Amino acid sequence: MEYHIFPEQQLRSFTENIFKAMGCSDEHAQLAADVLIKADLRGIDSHGVARLTGYVRLWEKKRINTKPHIKVVHETNSTATVDGDAGLGLIVAPWAMQVAIRKAEECGSGWVAVRNSNHFGIAAYHTLMAVEQDMIGFAVTNASPLVAPTFSTERMLGTNPICYAFPAENYPPMVVDMATSTAANGKLEIAQRKNTEVPNGWIQDKEGNTTIDPHGLKAGGSLLPLGSDREHGSHKGFGLSATVDILSAVLSGASYGPWAPPFVAFMDPLPNQPGQGLGHFLGAMRVDGFRPKADFKAHMDNWIKRFKEAKPINENQKVIIPGEPELAAEKDRKINGIPLIEAVVKDMNEVAAKFGLPIL
């Protein structure tokens, strides 16, 4: 597989220019690009600039508003509901997290439900905004229905990620960022571009049989909940995904379950939408609302240290703290550049040419 390596700033400038060509303001273009580049830096290639062409195609179908009027439509002292005005989730979610942080500063915690939004990139971007304020961050979102609930072949739920981020003192933040399906759809897209098989247990075909074909979804199959099947705990993944869907969409007034708008331009949302767009749910909790900040962060350090010292099965494979691989990737890629496969570069250059912009 051929990779092209790009300096962070080159990809950042390229991405900003694409968003500006779509009609985003300079400020919004910079923020949207920052969310995507953060994913690539952290090694989450499925949610980085590889997604850029998808946003462009949704905009071309008039499903994304690049000049949104984002607003709070309902609130209490510690909670709010935000309408994203069909804006980029890359813009709407950080705006909503800022609301959650302000409410946390005043009340100890802040919780914001979002409707009428779009795909918001990596959840960790938003939770780390809270960590920067010495708060615990929480972010979930519903997504395109690609996942079948346990005992079904029908796509009813998205990959519906859950993310928590916890500040520490001398260690980096602990970041738990995971899909509630066996794999994120973006990983399938990468496998399709590489033309490689996917692990057993990721996908089932339209009859409910396991398949390793990365094109299994296009053939009418579905992703499986975390756990793969009932014997391995898929009902737990189903339960987590359902919780995300309800917090993100039923609570906010977004579309939920099989009605969640797809992140592909060639598929229109189902008719009779029960809500508006995709939904998110974001939270920020002040650590000092529970105990002195210094005490918590010292004990987080102790927690991380002890788990890193846990006796390994194999001396060559130590326990990995959630967030460590992403941090290692970020340190490396900031120095050595961001790798993109040929298919992604080709797609991005085709979009650039369409807008009359310089190619990579």
Results as ranks from 00 to 15, higher is better:
residue 8 E to M: 04
residue 12 R to W: 11
residue 14 F to G: 01
residue 19 F to A: 10
residue 24 C to G: 06
residue 27 E to L: 13
residue 31 L to S: 13
residue 39 A to L: 08
residue 40 D to L: 07
residue 41 L to H: 11
residue 47 H to Y: 10
residue 47 H to N: 08
residue 50 A to R: 13
residue 52 L to Y: 14
residue 53 T to F: 10
residue 54 G to Y: 02
residue 54 G to A: 01
residue 59 W to P: 05
residue 63 R to A: 08
residue 63 R to Y: 05
residue 64 I to K: 07
residue 66 T to W: 03
residue 68 P to Q: 04
residue 69 H to A: 13
residue 70 I to T: 00
residue 77 N to F: 12
residue 79 T to P: 06
residue 79 T to K: 09
residue 80 A to L: 02
residue 80 A to M: 03
residue 82 V to L: 08
residue 82 V to H: 10
residue 83 D to C: 06
residue 85 D to R: 09
residue 87 G to T: 03
residue 87 G to H: 02
residue 90 L to G: 01
residue 91 I to N: 15
residue 91 I to E: 11
residue 93 A to G: 02
residue 93 A to W: 03
residue 93 A to I: 04
residue 94 P to D: 00
residue 98 Q to I: 06
residue 99 V to D: 08
residue 108 G to P: 00
residue 110 G to H: 00
residue 113 A to G: 02
residue 116 N to W: 00
residue 116 N to P: 01
residue 119 H to L: 00
residue 122 I to D: 10
residue 126 H to I: 02
residue 128 L to F: 01
residue 130 A to C: 03
residue 133 Q to P: 00
residue 135 M to C: 06
residue 137 G to E: 00
residue 142 N to R: 08
residue 147 V to P: 05
residue 149 P to T: 09
residue 153 T to G: 04
residue 159 T to P: 11
residue 160 N to H: 13
residue 163 C to D: 01
residue 173 P to Q: 01
residue 174 M to L: 10
residue 176 V to P: 06
residue 183 A to Q: 06
residue 188 L to F: 04
residue 189 E to N: 11
residue 190 I to C: 07
residue 193 R to C: 07
residue 195 N to V: 08
residue 196 T to M: 09
residue 197 E to C: 13
residue 197 E to A: 15
residue 197 E to G: 04
residue 204 Q to K: 15
residue 205 D to P: 09
residue 215 H to Q: 06
residue 218 K to P: 02
residue 221 G to W: 01
residue 222 S to P: 07
residue 225 P to N: 03
residue 227 G to A: 07
residue 228 S to G: 09
residue 231 E to D: 11
residue 232 H to M: 14
residue 237 G to I: 04
residue 237 G to D: 04
residue 238 F to I: 08
residue 239 G to F: 02
residue 241 S to I: 01
residue 246 I to E: 02
residue 248 S to C: 03
residue 254 A to N: 04
residue 260 A to C: 13
residue 261 P to D: 01
residue 266 F to M: 13
residue 267 M to H: 04
residue 270 L to R: 12
residue 272 N to A: 11
residue 281 F to N: 09
residue 281 F to R: 03
residue 284 A to D: 10
residue 286 R to F: 09
residue 287 V to Q: 08
residue 288 D to N: 07
residue 293 K to Q: 13
residue 295 D to K: 15
residue 298 A to M: 05
residue 298 A to I: 07
residue 298 A to W: 00
residue 303 W to L: 15
residue 309 E to Y: 08
residue 311 K to N: 15
residue 314 N to E: 12
residue 317 Q to W: 13
residue 319 V to E: 14
residue 321 I to K: 08
residue 324 E to G: 08
residue 330 E to D: 14
residue 341 I to Y: 10
residue 341 I to K: 12
residue 347 D to L: 05
residue 349 N to S: 06
residue 352 A to P: 10
residue 356 G to S: 10
residue 359 I to L: 13
residue 360 L to D: 13
